[in-house]
Design a protein around this nucleic acid. Structure first.
Length: 158
DNA sequence: GCCAACGTTGGC
DNA sequence: GCCAACGTTGGC
């Protein structure tokens, strides 16, 4: 069982969109970074859980939890010339990009902001999200980091 | 294989 | 809107 963090801009696809999606399920598509692709393609397993993180806003934060319900498979948006994620170098015979499917588990009872995570950085040794300049949209989370962040949910904001 | 130019991400 | 970080591209 692995843990992850998935970033999304709420203007594009936020947790509210996942709420209203059929079966509260979505394809995590459009990832166009090789390191993130490798995680999706090679390391995501059925039943893995991920934090749903809102980026690109005034107060970026972890807002929910999703579960992997389908392991990595080719991202067909790369084959579609009309898609914003189109990549002519990716073909059905030789797909370059992969996606997974995830389902909403639940919202967090309160958002855990990036600012709060930074204040707790000492307890989150080497948390990928806090590494200098980490812009990866798919990040691994250790079991210890996962448990620590979930415990924050029940603690007063600090 | 090096490296400068460029584009994107994402916090602030 | 700005800027730092950093991945990608392409000339050489």
């Amino acid at each position: 069982m692995n843990y992850w963090l998935l970033k999304s801009e709420p203007h594009t696809f936020g947790i509210a969109d996942l709420d209203s999606a059929p079966n509260q399920t979505t394809s995590w598509e459009g990832v166009r970074n090789y390191q993130a692709r490798n995680f999706l393609r090679d390391d995501f397993r059925l039943g893995d859980q991920a934090f749903f993180y809102h980026s690109g806003i005034a107060a970026p934060a972890i807002v929910g939890i999703v579960e992997v319900i389908r392991e990595g498979y080719p991202d067909a948006t790369a084959f579609d010339p009309v898609s914003p994620y189109y990549d002519p170098a990716s073909t059905p015979a030789n797909p370059r990009w992969h996606r997974v499917d995830v389902r909403l588990v639940r919202h967090l009872r309160r958002a855990i902001s990036l600012a709060e995570l930074k204040r707790r950085a000492a307890m989150l040794e080497d948390f990928a999200l806090l590494r200098r300049g980490s812009r990866l949209s798919v990040l691994p989370v250790s079991a210890a980091q996962w448990a620590f962040i979930l415990a924050l949910e029940s603690a007063p904001s600090a």
